[in-house]
């Protein structure tokens, strides 16, 4: 079995109102020096195939569903 972690983040230049709100929340809690917060998503995926098969499959999954490539970037990391 292969375990993977897929991280989906908004592309640079795409406004992230939720990240901004979280940034404001941190500021309200008194955290200083927070210059920017961007929110994203994490998917932990377990696959039955080999690492190599999993990598190809995961890239396809990201392109077809997990990320909206109009506004999001994705990164795949094999973790086990």
């Amino acid at each position: 079995m292969t375990k993977a972690r897929v991280t989906v983040t908004l592309k640079n230049g795409v406004l992230d109102p939720q990240g901004k709100a979280i940034e404001g929340g941190l500021y309200s809690l008194g955290f200083e020096g927070v210059e920017s917060v961007r929110q994203g998503k994490v998917f932990d995926v377990e696959l039955s195939g080999s690492k190599k098969e999993a990598e190809a499959q995961l890239a396809d999954m990201c392109e077809k569903l997990l990320a909206n490539t109009v506004i999001e970037d994705y990164a795949v990391e094999i973790v086990g």
Partner: peptide, 17 residues
């Protein structure tokens, strides 16, 4: 329709949340 790429662009969270 945007997610299906029948239309361009994307619809994101409202700016005012």
């Amino acid at each position: 329709l945007t997610e299906a790429q029948l239309l361009p662009g994307a619809l994101m969270r409202n700016a005012g949340l």
